Computed example of a mutant assay.
Amino acid sequence: MGDRIYSIDSMRIIAMVFVVSIHTDLFRGIGFYGNMFNFVIDSSARFAVPFFFVTAGYFFARKTTRRNATTYFAKRAATIASIYVFGLSLAAPVFLAGAIVRSSAENRPLVSIVSTKLTEFTTPLELLYYGNSVSEILWFLPALLFSLGLICSFIVFDKTDYLLPISLGFHVVGLFGASYTMLVDVPFEVRDALFFGFFYTSLGFHIASREWRPKPERSALYLGATVLFGALHLGERYVLGYVLTGESVGQTVYASSYSITTALLTLSLFVFLLSRPDLGRSTPLPSWGTYAVGIYVTHPAVLFALELAGELLGTAGYPVENTILWHLVLTPATFFGALLVYLAAHTVGAIEIGGTHLPSIRRIRNQVSR
């Protein structure tokens, strides 16, 4: 297998479409069929974030095979941190401006709103570890950084054989806190590195470190397993969200993050992609995969701006948010709007796609003066 796996590169951008669709709540609240469609899309999309963790762990193992793990982790940590800072620098002003607009419309004290928001944005634990102080969507980046840091520590102490079982143990606790709260009350946040990201990055690391090369002739079997676990995943979520609670799809949409079969679905899909490394090579998808991380960090600000515009239109007497047209437009507008913002940031020199994402005044000045 070559260094580049086109199937994984292709899946990056497809997974990002699913991530955006989760956050835009496609057709949610548009009657029974709208809620049912949203439930199916949301459930199907839950593989996306685990997929990104598995991919990161897989390539971390491959990159550290012939180089110092600590040195490489430091490099990766700097890159992830720069992407996180870039996402915060976009989201924070937009979210703050939105809070000001809403407070003005409601005649609330402006100083109090600004002070409250700035306090929320800079809460240390939420900002540096949980990644949800500004936007809950950005939690993935700190979780990935700390997950890779945990893996690196196992490498340094030569204890990687214990990596997967230990991370699985923490993830089981996370599952109780996320989807199986009816069994155990977990009194702390579990959507983080330790209880979620650590397991999936360890899973990817384990696959690569064991040099597992799924055979192409078995790809149909892996694809079949993916479809099977996808159906089981949908069924498990239906039981958790409706059968056990007595709720109906017409009343609400079950949107708990992850469950047991999420891991099976993600693993089978990833193995299938490894068995077909050239899948998507003749399409634009692998090159589009380069922009997945950029769309991820820019789409919270773009989505918030679009949703705020929808709210203001509703206040002005144009309730567009509950229309089918709005739902049809919101997801592609968020996706392509985020892509345009990311490309624009690169064009003006604020960031470097594939390089640092820390905004640089000097780089912007040099780009503008050309």
Rank of each mutant, 00 (worst) to 15 (best):
L141K: 01
L128S: 03
Y296A: 00
V243L: 13
L273A: 05
T323K: 14
W212F: 11
W288K: 01
L313A: 15
L264N: 02
G246Q: 05
H171P: 10
K117C: 13
K117G: 10
S89F: 06
A45D: 12
M11K: 00
F198W: 02
K63A: 15
A309K: 07
V297R: 02
R370H: 14
T356P: 03
G349Q: 07
A77K: 06
I166P: 02
V271Y: 01
A81N: 00
I353M: 05
L110P: 07
T245A: 13
R191S: 11
A77E: 02
P93G: 05
A74N: 02
A345Y: 04
S43E: 14
M11E: 00
L328Y: 07
A178E: 14
L228P: 09
D158H: 14
D9K: 09
F229T: 14
P216I: 01
H206C: 13
G314I: 10
F51W: 01
T283L: 12
G349T: 07
L340G: 03
F37D: 00
L96P: 02
Y162Q: 04
L232Y: 04
L306W: 06
F335V: 09
A91T: 14
A193G: 12
R362P: 01
R108E: 15
K63I: 09
F140I: 13
L313Q: 10
A193D: 08
F47I: 14
F59V: 10
I100Q: 03
Q367I: 00
V186S: 11
P332E: 14
A231V: 15
M1Y: 11
V243I: 11
T245W: 09
Y254C: 10
L232Q: 06
L221S: 05
T283R: 09
A91G: 00
G280Y: 02
F121P: 00
A15T: 04
V253N: 13
S21Q: 08
M36T: 15
P214I: 07
I155Q: 08
G317A: 03
S287W: 14
I351D: 08
Y129C: 11
L285A: 12
L223R: 05
G197T: 06
Q251A: 15
V368L: 14
A309P: 03
A78G: 00
V253W: 12
L312D: 02
N366R: 14
V156A: 08
L168Q: 07
R213P: 00
L232M: 12
T24N: 09
I137R: 04
P124G: 12
V243N: 06
K75D: 03
S248F: 09
S248Y: 04
T266H: 03
F205W: 05
L240C: 06
M11V: 05
T55M: 15
A97G: 11
V243F: 10
H299A: 00
V293W: 01
A45M: 09
A61L: 06
G230S: 13
P187G: 04
F188S: 02
V320H: 07
L343I: 07
V172Q: 00
L145F: 15
L175A: 04
V249I: 15
G34R: 12
F18E: 01
A45F: 10
L183M: 15
A91S: 14
R276H: 06
L163K: 02
P359I: 07
W326L: 07
T262H: 01
V134I: 15
L141Q: 03
